[in-house]
Amino acid sequence: MPGSSILVTTDKESVARRMESLHVFRLKLLSEEMCWLILSQKAFTGRSQASREILEDIGRKIANKRQGLPLAAKTSGVLLQDKQGREEWQNVLNNVIWK
């Protein structure tokens, strides 16, 4: 349709080229701290400060494994919302699916 636009997001420039994109914007990866902030906002929604203190060390390790990718940090945080204890969080940290 004339005047319409399509936004394509990808971490592979070759995909953008195949889509014949007019403008390619290369975004920088997030810092470890920013990944942690995104993940923790989602993961700790509705939790107590005590819960946060118990889980924060594992959560930071999980955030670091997301390698600066904002969607991965957000998705991890949402996944962790339903995980209650250290063992469940440790399972997420150790899961090979994130490699």
Results as ranks from 00 to 15, higher is better:
Gly46Ile: 01
Gly46Glu: 03
Arg47Asn: 08
Arg47Asp: 07
Arg47Phe: 03
Arg47Gln: 07
Ser48Met: 08
Ser48Ala: 10
Ser48Ile: 04
Ser48Thr: 10
Gln49Lys: 09
Gln49Arg: 08
Ala50Ser: 13
Ser51Phe: 02
Ser51Met: 09
Arg52Ser: 11
Glu53Tyr: 01
Glu53Ile: 06
Glu53Gly: 06
Glu53Lys: 07
Ile54Phe: 06
Ile54His: 08
Leu55Asp: 05
Leu55Tyr: 02
Leu55His: 01
Glu56His: 02
Glu56Asp: 13
Glu56Ile: 05
Glu56Ser: 09
Glu56Thr: 06
Asp57Ser: 15
Asp57Glu: 12
Asp57His: 05
Asp57Lys: 05
Ile58Pro: 01
Ile58Gln: 05
Ile58Leu: 15
Gly59Asp: 01
Arg60Asn: 06
Arg60Gly: 09
Lys61Pro: 01
Lys61Ile: 04
Lys61Gln: 14
Lys61Ser: 11
Lys61Cys: 08
Ile62Glu: 03
Ile62Asp: 03
Ile62Asn: 07
Ile62Phe: 01
Ile62Cys: 07
Ala63Ser: 11
Ala63Gly: 07
Asn64Gln: 10
Lys65Ile: 04
Lys65Ala: 10
Arg66His: 04
Arg66Leu: 14
Arg66Pro: 00
Gln67Phe: 05
Gln67Pro: 00
Gln67Trp: 02
Gly68Lys: 04
Gly68Tyr: 02
Pro70Gly: 11
Leu71Met: 12
Leu71Gln: 10
Leu71Asn: 08
Leu71Ala: 14
Ala72Gln: 03
Ala73Ser: 14
Ala73Phe: 06
Ala73Val: 05
Lys74Val: 11
Thr75Gly: 09
Thr75Tyr: 04
Ser76Lys: 02
Ser76Thr: 10
Ser76Tyr: 01
Gly77Gln: 05
Gly77His: 03
Val78Phe: 05
Val78Ser: 15
Val78Gly: 11
Val78Ile: 14
Val78Tyr: 06
Val78Leu: 12
Leu79Lys: 07
Leu79Trp: 01
Leu79Glu: 08
Leu79Phe: 02
Leu80Pro: 00
Leu80Phe: 00
Leu80Tyr: 00
Gln81Cys: 14
Asp82Phe: 11
Asp82Met: 12
Asp82Thr: 12
Asp82Cys: 12
Asp82Ala: 15
Lys83Ser: 12
Lys83Pro: 03
Lys83Asp: 12
Lys83Gln: 13
Gln84Trp: 06
Gln84His: 12
Gln84Pro: 03
Gln84Arg: 14
Gly85Asn: 15
